[in-house]
Design a protein around this nucleic acid. Structure first.
Length: 577
RNA sequence: GCACCGAUGGUCUAGCGGUUAUGAUAUCAGCCUUCCAAGCUGAAUACCCGGGUUCGAUUCCCGGUCGGUGCACCA
């Protein structure tokens, strides 16, 4: 953890990250982003928006972080993650408490943990592995629970992922996108998981930020991503299931080939794996410390056909998952359709209408109604569900709530006609790239962190990507006295007016100020010296090479704009110093 | 949640049953300074929280919080 310690020390010193609630002793799994950290995070999120919202055309939505119980009943988070657990005091193995008890006796479902503890004590139920004594039963649900409104009538949960909000809004989103697939929606926001014992510092948080995209696609066309050509030849470091099983290496493979060979299940999934690679490198993840690992069949959620994690190498922590890209199929929408009883399918028109024979039954409800009263509705439904040949009889026998009802053929008409079927209703599949912003932010810091020896002194420098660095440019008078200070302040103001995040600093020697900005990751330092007063030129210093060029102060805003857009080295501009 | 270890200025640290609680670095003010943590002067800032033992606790004991390590957990 040595590297982590050094990065975290810098993060605390320079105002990137620190423990939350420090004056009250803190709480594990919670961290604050300080001035530079919050700015860096926002810039990473903005880069993400540039890829997903601007690039892919997926609009961003924002839904409450608290959800009503039904959402998480449908998603499986309530039932699946509210298990009573018990730990063996001897071998420390954990078990489902109710399962252990059920091996010995019949018990009803839904017993409270106190009741289960009592039963275990009473019947001296022991650890099935080592026969050691069991501890008290405790509830195990990763969701934070709360009550909506006064009293305890309406349960609410802090969302454990942002995804559910986008599934729940599906009918409105479908209308917004004018009822056509495919379309995508994104959300950047906080999610909450009440981890039992978060470790690994900022890697495992109880409150964290996710950036997720849900791409709704016709399952028939998962192999026809409209923009696949743009990524087809990109080589990705893939570590598929077979390679993992055989302890094989991570192999670079072109995206197109990965789909053709079936390494990645379909074009849509592969496209977002590729887009993830582009994004991560763009915000400053070292490609040499990045790989894509396929989920093993056994670790995949039962509904997911294929799932790939982007993992980064962090020193002392190993390979850490920072993005998951999953084909969730129609699982989520189907679950919400069932629980909410709202139709979440999309009408997909056929290219040519299909001619289909259809039987239309018209019951004579004027007679059936008064005669059968309360059962009339069910009789109508039963008649309409009958096959044509069953209706061609003098009388029809129906089973209504276990009772036989005989309907004379005079009580309904039926005719079979050929009708046009113009399309079908399909529940879309969902391809979901899910990004852990906090982990990405820390990884960016660690991958940018560098120490080097300059003239016998250690230099710490954050080699952040120019576009995500919190401060874009520092303006420094060579000496802290007039007329340099006044001129520098003026230049700083001009750059602020141009929209840049500018730091003006005249405290201490010039060397010290360079180093301060190196630690903050500021890519450029503009220095105002006596030549500036004479001829209006300044020096611009590159953080990484420490090289300087001399350019006219008037052109600074334009120069910065070009440096940020093109990513070209500073050395190509102005006169070398 | 269990076991072991730790917690001292912003940061990194020395140390002790009674100290004016080290040192470095960072910060602020001033002097000096014509490009990479220079120098001088001064200032401000700390014993994680709660109980106990004791004349006296930052120091010893107990509990908690936070952090580290191992186990468990991480859909």
């Amino acid at each position: 953890m040595e590297k982590y310690d050094r990065v975290f020390e810098l993060a605390k010193n320079r105002g990137f990250i620190w423990p939350a609630f420090e004056i009250y002793g803190g709480a594990s799994g919670f961290y604050d982003y300080g001035p530079l950290g919050a700015t860096l995070k926002r810039k990473i999120e903005d880069a993400w928006r540039r890829f997903y919202c601007v690039g892919e055309g997926f609009y961003e939505i924002e839904v409450p972080t608290i959800g009503v119980e039904a959402i998480f009943e449908a998603s499986g988070h309530v039932g699946g993650f509210a298990d009573p657990m018990v730990t063996c005091q001897q071998c420390k193995e954990s078990f489902r408490a109710d399962h252990i008890v059920k091996e010995t006796m019949e018990i009803p479902d839904g017993l409270k943990k106190e009741q289960l503890t009592a039963i275990i004590k009473e019947h001296d139920i022991r650890c099935p592995e080592c026969k050691g004594p069991l501890g008290d039963v405790y509830d195990f649900n990763l969701m934070f629970q709360t009550w909506i409104g006064p009293g305890q009538k309406k349960k609410g949960y802090m969302r454990p992922e942002t995804a559910q909000g986008m599934f729940v809004d599906f009918p409105r989103l479908l209308r917004f996108y004018r009822e056509k697939l495919p379309f995508g929606v994104t959300q950047i926001g906080k999610s909450y998981r009440n981890e039992i014992s978060p470790r690994q510092g900022v890697i495992r948080l109880r409150e964290f930020t996710q950036a997720e995209a849900e791409v709704f696609v016709n399952p028939q066309f998962k192999n026809q991503h409209p923009n696949f050509g743009a990524v087809r030849d990109l080589a990705l470091p893939l570590w598929d299931e077979n390679a993992q099983l055989s302890n094989g290496p991570v192999t670079p493979m072109r995206v197109g080939e990965a789909v053709e060979r079936g390494t990645i299940a379909n074009q849509y999934l592969a496209y977002y794996v590729a887009l993830t690679h582009k994004f991560l490198v763009w915000v400053g993840i070292d490609p040499a410390r990045l790989r894509f690992r396929q989920h093993m069949r056994t670790e995949r959620a039962h509904y997911a056909t294929d799932c790939w994690d982007a993992e980064v190498m962090l020193e002392g922590l190993g390979w850490i998952e920072i993005v998951g890209i999953a084909d969730r199929t129609s699982y989520d929408l189907t679950a919400h359709q069932k629980r909410s009883e709202v139709d979440l399918s999309v009408f997909i028109p056929f290219e040519k209408p299909l001619k289909v024979k259809k039987t239309v039954v018209t019951p004579d409800m004027k007679t059936i109604g008064p005669k059968f009263k309360g059962k009339a509705g069910k009789i109508m439904a039963a008649l309409k569900a009958m096959k044509p040949e069953e209706l061609d009889r003098p009388e029809v026998r129906l089973d209504i709530d276990g009772e036989e009802v005989v309907i004379d053929s005079s009580l309904f008409k039926h005719e079979t006609a050929e009708v046009d079927v113009n399309g079908e209703n399909v529940i879309p599949h969902v391809v979901e790239p899910s990004y852990g912003i906090d982990r990405i932010l820390y990884s960016v810091l660690e991958h940018a962190y560098d120490e080097e020896i300059v003239q016998g002194e250690e230099r710490i420098v954050l080699r952040l990507n120019r576009t995500v660095a919190p401060i874009t440019v520092a303006v420094l008078p060579l000496l802290s006295r007039e007329p340099l200070t006044g001129r520098a302040a003026g230049i700083a103001q001009t750059l602020k007016n141009a929209g840049y995040f500018v730091e003006y600093d005249d405290s201490g020697t010039i060397g010290k100020r360079y180093r301060r900005n190196d630690e903050a990751g500021t890519p450029f330092c503009v220095t105002v010296d006596f030549d500036t007063i004479e001829d209006g030129t300044v020096t611009v210093r590159d953080r990484d090479s420490m090289a300087q060029v001399r350019v006219p102060a008037d052109g600074l805003a334009g120069l910065l704009s070009e440096l940020l857009c093109t990513g070209r080295p500073l050395e190509g501009y102005g006169k070398k110093v």
